[in-house]
Simulated assay, not measured.
Amino acid sequence: MPLAVLYSRAIAGMEAPLVTVEVHIANGLPGFTIVGLPEAEVKESKDRVRAALQNTRFEFPPRRITVNLAPADLPKESGRFDLPIALGILAATGQIPSDKLGHYEWAGELALTGELRAIRGALAMTYGAARSGRSFVLPEQNAAEAALVREAAVYPATSLLQICAHLAGREPLQLYSLHAERDAGTGEGEGSALRYPGMEEVKGQAQAKRALEIAAAGSHSLLTLCPII
Rank of each mutant, 00 (worst) to 15 (best):
P97D: 10
S98C: 06
S98N: 07
D99R: 14
D99G: 09
K100I: 03
K100R: 11
L101C: 04
L101H: 13
L101T: 08
L101D: 08
H103Y: 04
H103V: 02
Y104Q: 04
Y104G: 08
Y104W: 05
W106Q: 03
W106Y: 15
W106I: 03
G108Q: 05
G108F: 10
G108A: 05
E109R: 00
L110H: 11
L110R: 06
L110W: 13
L110E: 09
L110D: 15
L110G: 13
A111P: 01
A111E: 15
L112H: 02
T113A: 14
T113F: 01
T113I: 02
G114M: 05
E115C: 01
E115D: 12
E115F: 02
L116I: 10
L116F: 12
R117W: 12
R117D: 13
R117M: 07
A118W: 09
I119V: 12
R120G: 15
R120P: 01
R120S: 08
A122K: 07
A124T: 10
M125K: 10
M125W: 00
M125Q: 14
M125G: 05
M125A: 13
M125I: 06
T126Q: 06
T126M: 08
G128N: 13
G128A: 09
G128S: 15
A129S: 15
A129F: 02
A129P: 00
R131I: 06
S132P: 12
G133M: 03
G133F: 05
G133R: 03
G133K: 05
S135A: 14
F136T: 07
F136K: 02
L138H: 07
L138F: 11
L138W: 11
P139W: 05
P139L: 12
P139N: 08
Q141Y: 06
N142S: 07
N142C: 03
N142G: 05
A143H: 01
A143G: 02
A143L: 10
E145M: 01
E145S: 02
A146G: 04
A146I: 11
A146H: 01
L148N: 02
V149W: 12
R150E: 13
E151I: 10
E151P: 04
A153I: 04
A153Q: 13
V154L: 05
Y155S: 00
P156N: 09
P156T: 09
A157T: 13
A157I: 12
A157E: 00
T158L: 09
T158G: 14
T158H: 11
L160D: 04
